[in-house]
Simulated scan of single mutants.
Amino acid sequence: MMRKYLTLLAVVPALVLGGCEIGTKVVEQNGPRGLAIEQIKHKATMRTAADVPPPPYELTPDMREGERASAAYENVQVLGDISVDEFNYTMAALTEWVAPADGTVENGGCNYCHNPANMASDEIYTKVVARRMLQMTRAINANWTPHFNNNYGQSNENAGVTCWTCHRGKPLPANSWSDTPPTPTQIKGNKRGQNTPLVQTAYASLPYDAFSAYLSGDGNIRVLGKSAYPNQHEASIVATETTYGLMMHMSQGLGVNCVFCHNSQNFGKWDDSRAQRVNAFTGIRMVRDINNNYISALGDVWPANRRGPAGDPLKVNCATCHNGINRPLGGVKMLKDYPSLKGVHSTAPPAPAASQPIPGISPEEGPADSGAQPGPIAANQAQAKPAA
């Protein structure tokens, strides 16, 4: 009899707790069953894709013809190769994306970047920043297609980014980061760069600066990479903890768990990883390119209110574009209505073919073939379908 009651005591709480989960989660199968390669998402915390504003008006083919913007206007350094009509159309969209004139942004509208008495002037720093950001947007769309234009065998035409991808109607994107202030030299108050639970480290007492080395510096994750990625430093506890912090950020920033990219039976093995791991690898390099060559490169242009506590400008990470969704904005084809941002006019080198190196990545640092296909788990993965 006692054994019977003990069994009931064990079963009843399990049933109650299990019942609490009914209808609250979605399971997406990413690979063969039995390998624990699925995404488990709780409905209460699932992010939904933000709405994308419609174009300011229709851009017809004839509007793309005629006089170039650089000939009609003064000091047009980036979009001067498009027509006057397309230039005005793009400026109207950019205003809506970054500083709308609806009262939500102080001094919003054209005057956010321009002196209305002299539209050609560069006296307002936001115009200098906007110009550099337009260069960045074109460069991303031209040169980083290995990250965002890989639809695993299906056409992904017009994939890419616009200012809305990050800004979403605000001068500052919702997600950014900056360097941490130097740690004090005395014992009191010196946390040795850790023991400060933050969201980017999943609130663990890990090194809290997981971004400086990987998203702006030239550090590479080398905890296990012994096959496709040669191990270039001595594996250490500090390196492992910092890597974990970055991985937690990527997981939260994209709203996925570890097996979205990795094989749970061997996290370090590339052959059995999902194709998304290659995308993540190029994404880290793309973010580093943005931070180093476009944001930090502006130097003293940034005012104090656009800098972090260490004096460096606010920079981007994975969450800046993704905002908790594995495909930013739910995979909307952002460039369909804005051909001027595709990068076809960019002076940057063309995007590499699948067999060519990824921009800025040496053969020793990344896969010998940037179009390398993942192993059988990824090749045989089923289409992800929600399950009860």
Rank of each mutant, 00 (worst) to 15 (best):
G108W: 03
G108M: 04
G108I: 00
C110Y: 14
C110S: 11
N111E: 07
Y112W: 05
H114C: 01
H114M: 02
H114D: 00
N115K: 13
P116I: 13
N118D: 00
M119D: 02
M119I: 12
M119A: 03
A120S: 08
A120K: 13
S121A: 11
D122G: 05
D122I: 15
E123S: 02
I124M: 04
Y125I: 03
T126D: 08
T126A: 00
V128R: 05
V128G: 01
V129D: 06
A130H: 07
A130E: 14
R131W: 01
R132A: 15
R132F: 10
L134F: 08
L134E: 15
Q135K: 07
Q135D: 04
Q135R: 06
Q135P: 06
Q135G: 03
Q135L: 09
T137Q: 06
R138M: 15
R138A: 06
A139I: 02
A139W: 03
I140T: 12
N141W: 09
A142F: 11
W144C: 14
W144S: 14
W144L: 15
W144F: 15
T145H: 08
T145G: 05
T145M: 00
P146M: 03
P146D: 07
H147C: 11
F148Q: 02
N149S: 02
N151E: 07
N151V: 05
N151S: 06
G153D: 01
Q154I: 06
S155R: 09
N156S: 06
N156P: 02
E157Q: 12
E157N: 02
E157R: 05
A159F: 05
A159M: 07
A159Q: 00
G160W: 00
G160R: 05
G160L: 12
G160I: 01
